[in-house]
Design a protein around this nucleic acid. Sequence first.
DNA 1: TATGAATGAGGTTTCATTCAT
DNA 2: AATGAATGAAACCTCATTCAT
Lengths: 245, 245, 245, 245
Amino acid sequence: MARNPKLKSASHALVGKIKSTVDDPRLVERRRAQITEAAINVFSKIGYYSATIRDVANKANVSVGLIYQYVEDKEDLLFLALIEILDAYKRQIPVALEGIEDPLRRFCSAVSTYCSVHGRSVDATVLAYRETASLSKPRRNVIKQMEIETNEMLAACVRDCITAGSFDEDTDIEFLCYQAIMFSHAWALKSWNFGSRMTVDEYVDRGLALMLHGVLTSKGSRQIRQINESNASGKHHAARASAAA
Amino acid sequence: MARNPKLKSASHALVGKIKSTVDDPRLVERRRAQITEAAINVFSKIGYYSATIRDVANKANVSVGLIYQYVEDKEDLLFLALIEILDAYKRQIPVALEGIEDPLRRFCSAVSTYCSVHGRSVDATVLAYRETASLSKPRRNVIKQMEIETNEMLAACVRDCITAGSFDEDTDIEFLCYQAIMFSHAWALKSWNFGSRMTVDEYVDRGLALMLHGVLTSKGSRQIRQINESNASGKHHAARASAAA
Amino acid sequence: MARNPKLKSASHALVGKIKSTVDDPRLVERRRAQITEAAINVFSKIGYYSATIRDVANKANVSVGLIYQYVEDKEDLLFLALIEILDAYKRQIPVALEGIEDPLRRFCSAVSTYCSVHGRSVDATVLAYRETASLSKPRRNVIKQMEIETNEMLAACVRDCITAGSFDEDTDIEFLCYQAIMFSHAWALKSWNFGSRMTVDEYVDRGLALMLHGVLTSKGSRQIRQINESNASGKHHAARASAAA
Amino acid sequence: MARNPKLKSASHALVGKIKSTVDDPRLVERRRAQITEAAINVFSKIGYYSATIRDVANKANVSVGLIYQYVEDKEDLLFLALIEILDAYKRQIPVALEGIEDPLRRFCSAVSTYCSVHGRSVDATVLAYRETASLSKPRRNVIKQMEIETNEMLAACVRDCITAGSFDEDTDIEFLCYQAIMFSHAWALKSWNFGSRMTVDEYVDRGLALMLHGVLTSKGSRQIRQINESNASGKHHAARASAAA
DNA sequence: TATGAATGAGGTTTCATTCAT
DNA sequence: AATGAATGAAACCTCATTCAT
């Protein structure tokens, strides 16, 4: 039941469209990663428009000119940053689901990972939210498409839950997924409001409880109770896991 | 049971801190409204940073210089815009609740209004999301405070529902409110994804159904069924109402 | 036999295409003249590419920003400069011919003026020669067209000479005009080589002598001798005239 | 009566002043020729300032770094290009005069060659005109000196014509030479205007006719008629010759 | 000797802000 | 009070030049 994690190529193709004066593809990849990392950092902190190319260059410990050998535009920098952020989801969720067989647990894990990936770098997610609009239309569409693809990973979990009889047969899959995703985004967007009151894990637990009431079958409800119990006893492990992420 | 709508003064006090070279307070208010209107319009469309003062001046049919007689900064413009947007919520929700006695209906109406106010000008809400971070820290806090105050109107509805026995006694009020608000924001933020698939009303209905399952008492469940039935028969009215908004 | 000097409008129309953020047409005209003057000066001395906008701004005693309110591009500056240079010819030649009736004298005066206008600002002419190629193709064509129009003023003189029987009937008008114009450009282009050896007047006299041998009729030859004699006695006047130009 | 063609050394000495990090003189010469060729090509097409070192490197199929091992400056590249262009004249004219004994024919051939060399690469000549001013003063003087030396080859022809009694004894040699040279440059500079109306040969014929009227003795006039007649019958040969050039 | 990635000074351009009218 | 021309700091981006390999 393990899914194919070979999703890397999609964004690779997009990034490949950005022109570079440097030939060696290894170097291009390494430098771009270095620059993108810095860009995410800087943009997250002070915003895309406030950040200067020099800010990014300094953060990346390279010269301004170097950046322009791997990127055509300042907008390219934003594009690379957003792609990397969205890509992180696509890479992390399959990892989190690895080894988990039970569909309901898979769903819960996926939601939890969504929140945690956000939590790892709240600023980056907020960046994705704030600045997608600053892109050109075609690129904005690329980002939207990536979001949709990521969301599909969650939808697959939901479908499995229905097949397994844990969720109602007439569950509106898309709608449920969307609420789950918004729920996790909310953590990132408004962590200034919630962060002080609860941990991510508590946040996820409560959110799942709220959302699932509407879709759980009686069998599903029983399972959830078991899951919560085992989670409670395995808290140490969970804590460690989320810290490592 | 009508709440005090005299909240206007709060933002007024804040706006009052913005210096103007013009003395006549009537004129200041009128001009600021004119300029703010234009600012919301322009910022919503092309973003705060991309918009120039001249853009705003043109939209407002005034000169660039005039703006600087009612505002100190470009940031002031953003601040005024965001305050006006948030203020609209505070003004509209009490109006929507007027005359409704039943707490559960009040709650549903409030959520619906949240979404609809957004819907009236999706761009403006997105603006609030995107650009709050562009403010100076103290002003960002002011905006956050305003959000919290607005949310309190929803919290009051929830408390009434608990008192009336429609919601569980151990409902996490803040958490529920927050999810409801995120739910309505989601409509604005992602209407590009959902707008084509359903109307605001459908969106609200489904969302409430999902969220409330977790908190409704058996009494509450019965009420909801009644509400939905009466809504169904009163669709014309609802349609007209949302069209007028 | 006086020609219509109302040629100003042609270049005016072209200049009008350049966008300005300033509304008052009087001011635009005055500022553009001021800036163009400075641009000609600076570009002539150090070349279009070596000159910076700041150089031009300093020379014109205005700020850098001001220039960009009257001009879109650095290229606009070059365009304005070249148009002004070519326009000077169109303005000066009719003035020089004013009051002269005899066609042969008119022709000689025209050639002399060509050289003198150059002489007034050799650098400007060299600029026109060097930098026309730096313009975009459509603008390069505009400049070419202006040159052709200017040349036409000389061609008219030649035609009159033929009609009056001073030049051979089978004179190749275009070719003769072109050589005359090249001859005057040569003075500008290579004045570093000739300037030390003779005055403009001497240069023109010799050049005309050389060129006209091929086209003068016997009547024309007689006239030329008279002209040269009267010129010799009227040297003072001529000197003053060329100084005033 | 053949002149010494050993003029190569002059420019060689100049080029020798340009420092190179490479020792082997053979290699230096070969590489410089390769680079200069590319530079002429690129500069001619898009101008000295618009062209980048990388453009030249690409055209020459070498790396950017390699260029800087044979040249100190971008200006060196221009200098090399201009020297090569002027040198081509010095090399070609003696070749064209080879075997021609009659002084008047030699003069006509020389003028024709001037135009034709230009014609071979109009762009290169225009380059020489436009960009000489972009050089440092000492180097500009070097180029001027080279022009003067080249012109001297024409002057020698004129002197021979005078000695042979074909030209008036009081011919102003320098002035005539200069006009002849300007005449040939004109072809290059304004070929956009003339190129469509006549061939180089026609252009030269007409120009010589015009210029020589003023200096030909009666003997010279007779010779010219003969030359023109023989030219007319030898058109095939001439056509082939100009094609080969 | 040849390469091409890296540097950073400097140019063009924008636009928030001022101020004379 | 209202206008809009003028200012100039600061941003993006280019490209000649260097230098490690």
